[in-house]
Design a protein around this nucleic acid. Structure first.
Length: 288
DNA sequence: CACCAGGCGCACA
DNA sequence: TGTGCGCATGGT
């Protein structure tokens, strides 16, 4: 698939911490699961090469949808480049695109991310998929889809909670959040589906997520809004971003999260979420 | 052995 | 509405 003059960097997009289940093989191909398909993919200059299993009708469309290839990155850059910090962040991660994730997997992933570290988050999610997902084979290697709410609701709380050494998913106290969410959706007891949230306004969906599920606060809700609900104005405020924004833009003043978010939305505009991702990607440089 | 991690729920003012 | 504390587990 030719990207022609389309700005895109596969490695940057998969490495920046927005998705947890991609792995770079020793063959330098990326392996991952998009919705319910295994994908093997690599980028060589402006050529995007990929294989998908099981086979599907329009593979290019799922790739284009997942990697948001119709976002106009150049005009997004124009809108969010407000100063030299964000300019340098964009420069060093040129072509990074937000990824359009499955809402359910995204919700559980970021529920697990709270008070946790990325390598362990990845391992927990991989274990969940391995234990409760559906097996798909590509190149004689086995991959597992992220389990549906129904599949995950069959888990025992202890299987999710206890450590890897005991055969669990090491979710600790988050296990109850994950299992109760699976049950709520599997029973359809909320009166809405996660897909319905996509049709709502940012404020409505952001609020409803926190009211409906235990384990979702403002930050996790914002991750779901940004990474799965097409709400590009969402600005997830984690420990890194909070520190960066306070240091660079708010002169280290004592400002609460609501005010930080209001500032960022006003400052970066309707693509604030893209600005967040580029800042997060450069967090180590920006925090020193 | 301490201490912390892409936060959140809860108990209190 | 705002603040402080504890949290399961794994890693340093």
């Amino acid at each position: 698939m030719k990207l022609k003059n389309l700005l895109f960097d596969l490695n940057q997009s998969l490495c920046c911490g927005q998705v947890f289940r991609w792995e770079l093989g020793p063959d330098q191909w990326w392996y991952g699961v998009i919705y319910d398909h295994v994908v093997k993919i690599r980028q060589v200059a402006d050529e995007l090469e990929f294989f998908i299993a099981p086979e599907m009708m329009k593979p290019k469309e799922i790739i284009s949808l997942y990697f948001r290839l119709d976002d106009d990155l150049e005009s997004i850059y124009k809108r969010i480049t407000k100063d030299r910090y964000i300019e340098e962040a964009i420069e060093s991660a040129q072509g990074l695109r937000l990824i359009r994730q499955d809402p359910w997997e995204c919700m559980i992933s970021f529920m697990i991310s709270q008070n946790n570290q990325i390598p362990k988050i990845k391992r927990s999610i991989d274990t969940i998929a391995h234990e409760f997902g559906t097996k798909i084979t590509l190149d004689e290697k086995d991959f597992y889809t992220f389990p549906t709410p129904e599949q995950l609701s069959r888990a025992k709380i202890s299987e999710l909670k206890v450590g890897f050494d005991k055969g669990g998913c090491a979710l600790g106290y988050r296990a109850k959040y994950v299992l109760s969410s699976a049950l709520l959706l599997q029973n359809n007891s909320l009166g809405f589906s996660l897909e319905d949230l996509r049709e709502m306004s940012y404020n409505q969906a952001h609020k409803l997520l926190q009211e409906s599920f235990c384990g979702i606060g403002p930050k996790v809700a914002d991750c779901i809004m940004l990474f799965a609900m097409d709400k590009l104005e969402a600005f997830p405020l984690d420990t890194w971003i909070r520190k960066i924004v306070l240091n660079l833009y708010l002169d280290k003043k004592k400002v609460n999260d609501r005010e930080i978010r209001e500032f960022c939305l006003k400052y970066f505009g309707k693509y604030a979420g893209y600005a967040q991702e580029y800042l997060y990607c450069n967090r180590l440089k920006l925090c020193q």
